[in-house]
Amino acid sequence: MALLSKKDSNLILDPLADNNPITIQVLGICSALAITAELKASLVMAISVIFVMGIGNIVISLLRNVIPSKIRIIAQLIVVATLVIVVDQVLKAFAYELSKTLSVFVGLIITNCIIMGRFEAFALGNGVWRSFLDGIGNALGYGVILVIIGFFRELLGSGTLFGIPVLGDPIAKTGLYSIGYENNGFMIIPPAALIVVGIIIWVQRTRNKALIEEA
């Protein structure tokens, strides 16, 4: 396995675990709450962010020596906004159905603090290949949490996964519902996402004590 050096592979693996943008750095919480009522929306958002962050980090890294530091935030913002518009237009032309499912989420990507954070903290100071890996890694770390939250919220809140009923029919009382199980309506409202994030953080810190901050 010499595809990636140890240092490079850490760029991808760290954000997935001990340096996760959502559970450790507490970035990108807003979209994690807003769009995770369904697994499908979570997954699509994750994929879009992976795309925008991978390309965005490359562009910023390429431009890192020519961007004037006074207007670097604006320059970063333009890069994200441009990429998001490109994604939006291309989807509208060639994957119209998908673009409708995504509609607002694509716009939401611009406001995702993880993206600006990585541009600022990593891509401005590192080479193209490493920036690309860092972008993909962080987007994956974000996406994994999104998918986990989406999975539990959709399963417990609606009894479905990807819109397909997996626990039986709540109205006709089949499957689990026949023995008195009920969907938990609380799970589909945004605060439930915070609770799921909290549980993930709890599990993560129980497994790795080094993550616990000094009181």
Binding site: N65, V66, P68, I74, A75, I78
Partner: peptide
């Protein structure tokens, strides 16, 4: 990259 003229030029080209 710190000169004002450069900053303006960069902004114009980028836009």
């Amino acid at each position: 990259t710190e000169k004002n003229s450069y900053t303006v030029l960069f902004a114009v080209i980028m836009v």
